[in-house]
Amino acid sequence: MEKSGHFRPLYFISDELYFPPVENANIDGLLAVGGDLSPERLILAYKSGIFPWFNENSVILWWCPDPRMVLYPKKIKISKSMRKVMGSNLFRLTKDTCFETVIENCAKIPRLGQEGTWITPQMKNAYLALHKTGIAHSYEVWKENKLVGGLYGIDLGHVFCGESMFSLTSNASKFALIKLAQELDSKNYALIDCQVYTEHLASLGAEEISRSSFLRQLKCIDQ
């Protein structure tokens, strides 16, 4: 028997700055369709535990999956080999020095099981606009004078919503995530939102929690 949540009707977003209750999402986590990617709507979405994810030829799709993949900064896993990398001078980290280049590289990286990229020109422009408001940030990894990795995401103050990362050489994206987690831990951030499960994230200490638990933590943080 199919789970009844799979057949829940989707909410079609109008011009009103509003999202339906996340409990209305279907079994896959899809909550609503349509709307726009204005900074105001995106900020409302992230503060509500919702994020956009869609292909280039699709309408805008809004998601709030259950379970939710998160990384608690204190729980970041650093392997023995990565500890050597972290202690060496192989990489250096910068922040917000080339946001647009980071997002362009993230869009180019092939993803297992995905055709094309979800970081469409529309999405890129939306996050560039958020970057200009000071809420979207990039972390860049350099080897000598070459950009070799990085990540970007949305900073809500005590939660960092990771969007995507890339690596052009071994361990570069791991270096970026570990450095991010260490920085956020020092600032008492509650968690890094990783959205959905991947083996790579799990190997670095990320874990799945229930949507309700994620939203409770997000709501407490937002008060």
Score class of each variant (00 low, 15 high):
Thr97Arg: 14
Ile76Asp: 07
Ala25Ile: 02
Thr101Ile: 09
Phe91Ile: 06
Glu104Tyr: 04
Gly29Asp: 10
Asn125Ala: 13
Tyr46Phe: 13
Trp118Thr: 01
Gly113Ser: 03
Asn24Gln: 14
Val85Trp: 09
Glu40Asp: 14
Val22Asn: 09
Asp15Val: 03
Pro52Arg: 11
Val59Tyr: 07
Ala45Gly: 07
Ser81His: 08
Lys95Gly: 02
Ala129Met: 09
Glu40Gly: 05
Pro21Asn: 11
Met82His: 09
Lys74Arg: 14
Tyr18Pro: 01
Leu128Met: 09
Leu90Met: 15
Pro21Cys: 10
Gly87Ser: 14
Cys106Thr: 02
Val59Gly: 10
Ser48Lys: 11
Pro67Asp: 06
Phe7Lys: 12
Leu44Pro: 02
Cys64Lys: 00
Asn26Val: 09
Lys108Glu: 14
Ile43Thr: 03
Thr94Ala: 10
Ile13Val: 13
Leu37Met: 04
Ile50Ser: 00
Asp15Glu: 15
Gly113Tyr: 06
Tyr127Glu: 00
Tyr72Val: 13
Arg111Lys: 14
Phe12Tyr: 12
Glu56Asn: 09
Pro65Cys: 02
His6Leu: 13
Lys84Asp: 09
Met123His: 02
Pro39Ala: 08
Val59His: 06
Tyr11Asp: 04
Asp36Trp: 05
Ile109Leu: 15
Arg8His: 12
Gly49Thr: 00
Gln122Tyr: 03
Leu42Lys: 00
Ile13Gln: 06
Ile78Glu: 02
Ala25Val: 04
Asp96Val: 03
Phe91Arg: 07
Ala129Gly: 03
Ser4Cys: 13
His131Pro: 11
Phe99Arg: 05
Asn57Pro: 00
Asp66Glu: 12
Leu30Thr: 01
Lys132Ile: 07
Trp62Phe: 10
Lys47Asp: 02
Ile27Tyr: 11
Tyr11Cys: 13
Pro110Glu: 06
Pro9Leu: 11
Phe7Met: 13
Ser14Thr: 15
Thr133Pro: 04
Asn55Trp: 05
Leu130Cys: 00
Ile43Ala: 02
Leu17Ser: 08
Val102Ala: 01
Ile43Glu: 06
Ile119Val: 13
Trp62Ser: 00
Arg92Gln: 09
Leu17Asp: 11
Gly29Tyr: 08
Asp96Gly: 07
Lys124Glu: 06
Ser79Trp: 10
Glu56Pro: 01
Arg41Met: 07
Pro39Trp: 08
Arg68Phe: 14
Ala25Lys: 04
Glu100Asn: 12
Lys108Phe: 06
Ala129Tyr: 04
Trp63Thr: 01
Leu93Ala: 03
Met86Gln: 03
Ile119Glu: 05
Ser88Thr: 07
Val33Cys: 12
Ile50Pro: 00
Ala32His: 00
Arg8Pro: 07
Glu2Cys: 10
Thr94Arg: 13
